[in-house]
């Protein structure tokens, strides 16, 4: 699979994503500068990495969402290509209107960095095919703005269309509000667009992809994407 990681000024998880994907796929991972007009040809998956693009100034993700490369990312998504926004990348996708909603400051009003358990809600997306239904996995979170927000009615529609892919859950799989580390509405940790080819995820699968660091559930995401691409989608 061909992966491109976009580097914005202030991205700081870009190299982590590059390493995780290069190590998983055994292929070089392209790094694309935010000012570039185009993605490398034959890109299967574009990753918008975590970090503090433009210092998180004004609103998280707002300025990155308006950088030149985002036109190419939008086109890639429109043509059915895969896009994964992790943490700040998720915030950028909402600001770019590639995903609905927005990410507000955590209910704790502090940055929160810790391992988190998530329940996978759908296994028929390009990003979750390798998961078992309702599987509980562990990815770390590290963010200050992770409270997913949409007005109530739109949230209901989002749920009805099955766009919620990951929820914060207890290790046993309960998605009671206490299991959410940031107060996210309905414990939402990750959503896809209607078509299912754009995923925004606050937790960090690239930080759970190396046994030396203790967690490896993130590999399931890469396995899912690889399987999807091999399946000829």
């Amino acid at each position: 699979m061909n992966v491109s990681v976009v580097v914005f000024p202030g991205s700081n998880c870009d190299q982590d994503a590059v390493r995780a994907l290069a190590s998983f796929s055994g292929r070089p991972v392209a790094q694309v500068w935010h000012g570039d007009p185009a993605l490398p040809a034959a890109t299967d998956l574009v990753i918008l990495p975590g970090g503090f693009s433009y210092g998180d100034y004004l609103r998280t993700g707002a300025m990155a969402a308006r950088s030149p490369i985002m036109e190419a990312v939008r086109r890639h998504a429109y043509e059915g290509g895969l896009v994964l926004g992790i943490c700040n990348g998720f915030q950028i996708l909402t600001e770019a209107r590639l995903l609905p909603g927005t990410l507000l400051p955590n209910k704790t009003l502090t940055f929160v960095c810790k391992p988190c358990t998530l329940r996978v809600e759908r296994t028929d997306t390009p990003f979750t095919g390798a998961f078992r239904p309702n599987q509980v996995v562990q990815f770390p979170i590290a963010h200050h703005e992770g409270l997913f927000y949409l007005p109530e009615k739109e949230l209901d529609e989002l749920e009805q269309r099955g766009q919620v892919v990951f929820r914060y859950a207890s290790p046993e799989g309960s998605v009671a509000p206490e299991a959410s580390p940031n107060g996210s509405l309905r414990n939402i940790a990750g959503i896809v667009n209607e078509r299912g080819n754009v995923l925004g995820l606050m937790p960090h699968p690239e930080r759970a992809s190396d046994p030396v660091l203790g967690e490896r559930d993130g590999l399931l995401v890469w396995q899912s994407v690889a399987g999807w691409i091999e399946g000829g989608h």
């Binding site: 390493r19 995780a20 929160v112 960090h204 930080r207 660091l213």
Partner: peptide, 10 residues
């Protein structure tokens, strides 16, 4: 927990 202790994945 208010500090990112994991970035750079090392």
């Amino acid at each position: 927990e208010q500090y990112d202790s994991m970035v750079q994945t090392n």
